[in-house]
Design a protein around this nucleic acid. Structure first.
Lengths: 186, 186
DNA sequence: ACCTGAACACCGTTCAAGT
DNA sequence: ACCTGAACACCGTTCAAGT
């Protein structure tokens, strides 16, 4: 069967999980799919749009969390989803630039309303929380990449079955940031 | 006189201000300096280190603010410094990965201690605030780049004397985030 | 409709050899 | 000491031409 946008997005997703963002190139993707680079552009408008689609696939599980999942837990899942992907936060920054309403934003907004914020305030707060989350994960990943700790040093090997750059230090910092941004004391 | 690391950093800085991060390439930089690309590597170990040095230059004015400058004002200056530079936040993310103690972090820590936080807590809070600031500016810039508003559409022209992607919306969101992260109600 | 071939205009980095 | 020349191993994107 011929190539399709969906097949390209899927291959890019696999490449991302196995080798990280810097190995997701249009030329390498074409090689993986047994096709010439130019062929991709018949199905996909640009690399940027392709990456945004991949981000959407990754974040889809965060779109409709059960009502029992609180806002903080939702954002912990966001971190846990993005952190194991090499340069995952950079990808998300690109994706949220293209589409600010990506998951988990709508669920985040609903959760904040459930906590008592009016619609407008919930919208504002959701963006603030999202900005913090993106910045925190990006900083955490860049730090891990540049001065790797023993536990984080698994280059060249695929990072699929790996714990990733998870650290208790990073998690605690993230949790404290979330706590400060939750609607309560103000 | 021969080339020097300082001259390269300065040329990279100028290129960044005039054309944005994606135009700061080792080859273009070499061209600007009238030299072959390989020559740069005699003075500078890598592009990444070079960019970190440029970031340091840009943030230097935020290192020692007068005691009258509060924490929120300091962070507003950080945003005002980074926002007009095309992909400035991406650059800062690279730089803070390489060196988490870059300005305005030390001043931020001191300011938070002045507001009553113990040293350890001030350190923690400074990182949280910094993560938010980096995420917020990065999101703001990526959004401006991808769906430009009329006021923001100044491609191809140098962005030196330009207002940049400043918006009242972005500023208000940023201020509110800072407010929530300031030590008071808890 | 879908893809190839080939080009356009680039990258970061290394390193023997020249001066 | 400082730089060139030349290579290595790549990029994203376009588009006439083929099937």
């Amino acid at each position: 069967m011929p190539l399709s946008a969906a097949a390209i997005v899927e291959a890019a997703h696999r490449l991302l999980l196995d080798y990280g963002l810097q190995d997701v190139s249009m030329r390498r993707l074409a090689g993986e799919l047994g096709v010439r680079p130019g062929a991709l552009y018949y199905h996909v408008p640009s690399k940027q749009q392709l990456l945004a689609d991949v981000a959407h696939r990754i974040l889809a599980p965060l779109a409709d969390p059960p009502g029992t999942v609180g806002v903080e837990e939702l954002m912990r899942r966001f971190r846990a989803t993005v952190l194991p992907i090499r340069d995952g936060a950079d990808l998300m920054l690109i994706a949220f630039g293209l589409n600010p309403g990506l998951p988990p934003v709508p669920a985040l907004r609903r959760g904040l309303e459930r906590l008592g914020l009016a619609s407008g305030l919930a919208h504002e707060r959701a963006q603030i929380v999202m900005h913090f989350a993106l910045g925190a994960v990006a900083a955490e990943q860049n730090a891990a990449l540049l001065h790797p700790t023993p536990e984080t040093t698994d280059r060249e090997a695929p990072n699929r079955e790996t714990t990733g750059p998870e650290t208790t230090r990073g998690a605690a910092l993230y949790d404290e940031g979330l706590r400060l941004l939750m609607p309560t004391a103000d």
